[in-house]
Design a protein around this nucleic acid. Structure first.
Lengths: 310, 310
DNA sequence: TTGTCTAAGACAAACATTTGACAAAAAAAC
DNA sequence: GTTTTTTTGTCAAATGTTTGTCTTAGACAA
C-alpha cells in the first residue's frame, strides 16, 4: 500500500489518461460521448473533460463489450452492472446458461462464489466464478484480490482440516484450466518467454500466474509445466527461440539439488538468454544465480515491472 | 442465487455474439432462419437481428444435434425439450456405430499437424489441432485414431530420443487443457461420477479421457486429478453425492501400495457406490477388488459400454 | 511557439441485410 | 452400383447502417 494513494483529491483524470487506461482512442471516447451520451464527465473551467474513476470503469467495460462483438449503440443504455453480467456471459464460452451472475460492488462478491464452489466440490462453479471475476475486474486486481486470496484460503483451510485434499485437487485443476485458457488468448506476436519450474518444485500455480502476467506485458509466454530438469529447460529454451526463461520457485525445497540444477542451467544456457526468478522465495536463492543474467521478483507487481523493462 | 430470471432488459444479442457463442457461422444462422424459420429474432429499427437468450440456447442445441449427424430440416419442427432428449440419446449411442468410415489418410490429416505442433513446441498449434480434429471427427474416432496415436507417438519418440522431456510436458499440458475444456461442455444433468487415480498413479491422461467418455454417456463426471489417497477418494465421493467412482490405472505401479489403498477404499466406501476400473492394466488388479461393486474396462469402447449399462 | 484540448462535420471501412447462385454431400430413385 | 434429386453450407452482389478515424478551426496552457 503506497502512502500517496491516488484515491483522493486528484480523482479526476484528463482524456489522455483515460485513453491509455481503457485502450480506447481519444476520438472514440469523444465520439461515444457525443453520439450516445455514454458518460458525462465533469468539465474544467475551460471545457476540458475530467473523468471520474467510475467513468473509467464504465468505459473499460464498454471497451471489452465492443471487443467481444457488441454494437456500442446497443450498449449505451445499459448500467455498469448489466454490462458486467453481459461480459461474464459472453466470455463463458462453454456454458450458455448458468445461474449465478454476480453483482459488482466488492471483491468479496467475486471471492465468495469461488470459495463456495471450492467447498462444494463444484468444478463448474469454480471455473465460472473465475471467469466472472476476471472479466469484471482489471487483471492485476483479479490476481491480487481474488485469485491469491483464494489460494491462501485453500492453503489455510487445508491445514485447519476444513477442507480435504479433494477440495484442493479439484480447485487446483480448475484454476489451472482457467489460467491456461487465459494464456492462449494473447496475441501471437512478441518475444518468446519460457515459463516453468525446476526439478523438485511441483507447484504449478505460481508459474502459471507468472506466465499470464508475462503475457499481459506482451510476451509470448510458453508454459511448460513444473518439475523440469535444467538440461531440458535449456534445450527447450533454445529450441523454441526464447528470449528468456521465467522460473517459479514457490516452495522452499531441497537447496542442494536446486543449487546443482541452477549451476547446470548456467552452463547450458547461452549468455543472451535472461532468467527471471519469481515466487515467494525468489531472493532467498539469489546467490545461486551469480554470474547469470538473472532478475528476482517476489511478487506479481515487481514481476510485471521487471518484464516491462526487458 | 440461481434465480434464472436474470433476463434483464438488455438481453438481446447481435448476430456476431450469437455466432461466437453457438459456433455457427453467421451465414448458417441466417440460412436456417430463412429456410426453416428456426428462430425468429426480434429486429432493431433498422433491421438488425436481435436474439434472445432462449434463441441462443435453441441454436446451440441445434448446432450440437447437427454435429452429431442429424439433418437441420428434420430438426426445425422440434421443441427445445425434444432437442435435449434427442441429444442425450444421440450421445449415448454414439459409440456402437461409426467405425465404418475408416480411411487412413483422413486421420493422418488430423494427426500430422498435431505431431508437428508437438515437435515444434508450439502450444497453440497443439491445442488448435486437437480442436480441429475433435470437431471434424466423431468423438470415438477422434480418441482412437488421433489422440491415442499421438500419445503413442510421444511415448515412442521419447524413448527413441527424438523428443525431449520438454516436448512431452508441453504436449501433455495442452492435451489436458483440451480435455478439461471438453469435459465442461456437457449438459448439467445426470448422475455424478467421480474420476481420479489412486496414490502412486501419476498419469492423468487416461483418467481424463475416461472422464470425457463418461460425460458423453450422460454422466456428470467430476475430474479430481491424479494421485488421490483412498480415504480422500471415498470422502469426496460421499461429499459430492456421486453414484460411482472411476479409477484409472495406467501405469503398473507398486502392487503392495495399491492393494492396501484399494482395501482402504473398500472399507470407507458405502456399498451403493460402484467402482469402475479403467486403463491398460485394469484386469491385472481384478482380485484386489473382490467383494466390491466393481467393473473392469481395459479400453475406451468397453468403458463406454459399461457406463451405458449402469 | 508548440502541444493538447474542444466541437462539428466528413468519410471510409466494417458490418448486416436480402437475394440468388453454386458445389459438395446425402438421400432417393433407378 | 449408378444416376438423379434434395439438402445444405458457403459465397457474391447490391444496398444500407454503424462506427472509428480524420479534418478543420478555434481556445487554452506550458
Amino acid at each position: 500500500m503506497s502512502a500517496s494513494s491516488t484515491q483522493n483529491s486528484s480523482a479526476y483524470h484528463p482524456i489522455q489518461v483515460v485513453s491509455q487506461r481503457t485502450g480506447l482512442s481519444k476520438d472514440v471516447i469523444r465520439a461515444w460521448e457525443k453520439r450516445y451520451s455514454i458518460v458525462e464527465p465533469k468539465r474544467h473551467a475551460t471545457g476540458r473533460r475530467l473523468y471520474s474513476e467510475s467513468d473509467i470503469q464504465r468505459l473499460s467495460l464498454l471497451q471489452k463489450a465492443t471487443r467481444s462483438g457488441r454494437r456500442i449503440s446497443d450498449l449505451s443504455a445499459l448500467t455498469d452492472t448489466e454490462l458486467s453480467e453481459l461480459l461474464a456471459s459472453d466470455n463463458a464460452q462453454f456454458f450458455p446458461d448458468k445461474p449465478e451472475n454476480s453483482r459488482v460492488s466488492d471483491y468479496g462478491e467475486f471471492l465468495q462464489p469461488l470459495i463456495t464452489g471450492i467447498k462444494q466440490l463444484d468444478d463448474d462453479g469454480i471455473y465460472q466464478s473465475l471467469v466472472n471475476a476476471s472479466t469484471a475486474l482489471p487483471q492485476i486486481i483479479f490476481f491480487e484480490q481474488v485469485l491469491y486470496p483464494a489460494l491462501l484460503f485453500i492453503g489455510e483451510s487445508w491445514k485447519n482440516g476444513q477442507l480435504r485434499i479433494g477440495h484442493e485437487h479439484l480447485a487446483s485443476i480448475q484454476i489451472k484450466r482457467f489460467l491456461l485458457n487465459l494464456l492462449e488468448r494473447e496475441l501471437p506476436v512478441g518475444p518468446r518467454l519460457l515459463v516453468t519450474t525446476p526439478v523438485g518444485q511441483r507447484h504449478e500455480l505460481g508459474a502459471l500466474m507468472a506466465a499470464v502476467i508475462a503475457a499481459m506485458e506482451g510476451w509470448r509466454s510458453r508454459y511448460m509445466g513444473p518439475d523440469m530438469p535444467a538440461t531440458e529447460i535449456a534445450a527447450a529454451a533454445i529450441a523454441s527461440e526464447s528470449k528468456g526463461i521465467l522460473l517459479s520457485l514457490a516452495s522452499r525445497a531441497d537447496g542442494k539439488l536446486l543449487k546443482q540444477e541452477i549451476s547446470t542451467l548456467a552452463d547450458a544456457l547461452p549468455d543472451d538468454i535472461f532468467v527471471v526468478i519469481g515466487g515467494n522465495n525468489a531472493e532467498r536463492y539469489a546467490d545461486f544465480f551469480s554470474g547469470m543474467n538473472a532478475y528476482f521478483c517476489s511478487d506479481l507487481r515487481s514481476l510485471s515491472a521487471t518484464l516491462e523493462g526487458l
